[in-house]
Amino acid sequence: MSVLELKDVSISHVQGLEKNTVVHDVNVSVKAGECFGLVGPSGCGKSTLLWVLAGLNPHWSGGIQLLDQPLKPGKVFSGELRRRVQMVFQDPYASLHPKHRLRRALSEPLKLLGYQDIDDRLSEGFKLVGLTENMIDRYPHQLSGGQRQRVAIIRALLLEPKLLLLDEPTSALDMSVQAEILNLLNELKAKRDLTMIMVSHDPEVVDYMCDHAVTMKAGRIDKETFYD
């Protein structure tokens, strides 16, 4: 069963009236429970592809089947699909709202979904990623980079996603913290039955994490690799 099916997908960046196509004719299939890697030099279009899958860039053409649902170009995600696809961003210093305490940042989407047991879910989430619960009333600037990235992971997982997008989740962190976060993600993938799509320019990280990867070059798929 495949979670994601891309057929001849091209993606553009729209600026004013100009359209700049940066990803051309990508065909990819990602199976459930897989960790899929997108590798390539900077500017090859891997992050652009990820942002389309995140529903943050609607300017694409071709066919996308995401979580058994065909997507339409130009439309934003809503409802169930919006919730089941979550992302962990590259820079943990920029992905948390600077004026919101962790409690607010994490509980607001759950409130919108109408959950009652928000506090229990939050404390469960903190345990899951190895943070202590007393941090919950802190602001992001009172946390270290690794801690913030863990918070970003909780935030994504609280919505119980089926597909977790990782945009170079460790590139802004130092080596020892990198290893911790990668191990955490591996653990979570096993526990939570997650499918992950990971963008990285580091072949070692992809080697360590992924079952299946494509290398992109100048907006096209250059080669496809399966790891054991």
């Binding site: 995140a54 529903g55 943050l56 919006r82 919730r83 696809v85 979550q86 992302m87 961003f89 590259q90 820079d91 920029a94 992905s95 948390l96 709202h97 600077p98 004026k99 919101h100 607001e108 989407p109 919108l112 979904l113 970003a152 935030r155 919505l159």
Partner: peptide, 26 residues
């Protein structure tokens, strides 16, 4: 275009809730 607003949108926070709760404080 900041990451935290993109993250909020991905979490289903849109419209006036995003404007008043997330943009206004900044």
């Amino acid at each position: 275009r900041s990451d935290y607003l993109s993250a909020a949108k991905m979490q289903g926070i849109t419209g006036w809730r995003l404007i008043i709760g997330h943009i206004l404080p900044l």
